[in-house]
Amino acid sequence: MEQNIYKPIQCEVIDVFEESPTIKTIRLKPLEPFSFLAGQFISFTVPGIGEAPFTPSSSPFEKNYMEVTVMKTGKVTAAIHQIKKADIVGIRGPYGKPYPMEKFADKNILLVGGGVGLAPLRALFYALIETLDNYKSIVFCLGARSPVDFIFKKEVFETWLSESWLSSYKKISFRITADKKDETWKYNEGVVTKILDNLPFVPENAVVCGPPVMMKFTTLKLLDVGYKPEEIYLSMERKMYCAIGQCRHCLLGDKFVCKDGPVFTYEEIKNQPKIWA
């Protein structure tokens, strides 16, 4: 008999981290063998409530657990925010195409993330670190609406920006901004497109993830500073149910976000209707 494609793998919640007033990271331990590649996504089930798609935010090389970083927006994400340690939830996947790591070989890589859009980039960033010898250099631009909304604070400010970390990863640099700063903020102020000038390398590959309006203006800015449409990787978001190319909800014109994406080059989708909606 065929396997039921909708049957989730059970996971135990082993920790919950509050990232911002609206964003939490859930650390899961799958109770069956499970692995993914950076950029692929999972369908997260809260039993009896529903499913929603998320790209894991933890390193794909981390074998003991997997993390998803979730902003509270709808019914399922509200239920995810209620989750406690030791709860049992479900996941299906991984689905979709991963980031094309092979295309980044011997290249300079620009990562641009905004808000909860930093989640998939964190997974990618960890994957890049594991294979750092393959790349020339990485600039990671991180943004949020405000300092309070900035996620992965502990990691970014206490680890990645520490002198010891930076001195052991000389190929990597960070640019940090908040749309509107407060008195505690020591970094840039303004939208993320403001920190994309004077990049320390020639345009080669840019990976962008964030809210639609941020991705739109970041793409325009990147084109402006010399990136080609086929060098800009975008994480697209659409309503999704099945995640396996059947229910057709995620179609971006004739492209399935769930199986042709979720990562597309701008070149692949620029002629599809309403991509920034």
Partner: peptide, 10 residues
């Protein structure tokens, strides 16, 4: 027309 949604009940 093949579109469908998934609905959970408990």
């Amino acid at each position: 027309c093949v579109c469908f949604l998934l609905e959970d009940f408990s």
